[in-house]
Amino acid sequence: MTIDPSSIPNFGGQPEPQPQGGPAGPVVPDQDLVKQLLDQMELKYVVDDEGDLAAPWEEFRTYFMFRGEGDQAVYSVRTFYDRAHKIDDKLQLLESIDDWNRRTLWPKVYTHTHDDGTVRLIGEAQLLIGAGVNIELFVSSTVSWVRAAIEFDKWLVEQLGLESDVDDAETKPEEDDE
């Protein structure tokens, strides 16, 4: 099974090319299909020690995981955001992600509090694939979920005023010449 490049959604405003021929039958996606899609999207990826496929960005990692068997098989795209938040900021985080979750379909975002008191965010979207899915649905969902994971990170930076944190990390203090 291969991915028709014309089936990758175009978010640039131009009309999407339509695949030739009739609709394809259902397929049961696997990791190789996701690798092919990520290659076509020109995204770097790795396979971790547990065998899960991950695409790393600077502030987060997105995992493409397959769980379950038979009709219960699930494809999950899960993003782990690396920015650590203080436990004292958890209420503000919850209010922000509740707002995101009400306004958007994906990723649904939740908090995880670590033993050391830091709070990190996780975004997730899932698709039941055990009975097979339409290839165009699989491709467009995966692409949309990746783009939404990126957009969430940008949105959160704006919502919480984290631009200064990003700017401070990128800017080195000037040294006095005296």
Rank of each mutant, 00 (worst) to 15 (best):
V74C: 06
W100K: 08
W145Y: 09
F64T: 14
Q36E: 15
L91E: 10
F66Q: 15
E136Q: 13
L128F: 05
I135E: 03
L38D: 11
D49Q: 14
D89Y: 10
H114A: 15
V28D: 09
D116E: 06
Q18P: 00
I97W: 00
A149I: 13
L121E: 04
D49R: 12
H114V: 11
V133I: 13
L137R: 04
A84N: 14
Q18E: 14
D115N: 05
I87C: 11
E124A: 00
G70Q: 02
G68V: 01
D71L: 08
E95S: 06
P107D: 04
W145V: 12
S76H: 08
F60S: 04
G132C: 03
E124M: 01
I150Y: 08
N101L: 03
V143Q: 12
W57E: 07
V47C: 10
R78S: 07
N101F: 01
I87D: 15
S141F: 14
W145Q: 11
E59L: 13
R83N: 06
Q126S: 10
V28N: 10
V46Y: 15
Y63Q: 09
L43P: 00
L37R: 05
A55D: 03
L53A: 05
H114C: 08
P29K: 08
G70T: 00
Q126H: 09
L127F: 07
V139M: 07
R83I: 12
L37M: 06
Y45L: 01
P107L: 02
I122L: 09
K108N: 03
L33H: 11
L91W: 07
S144D: 05
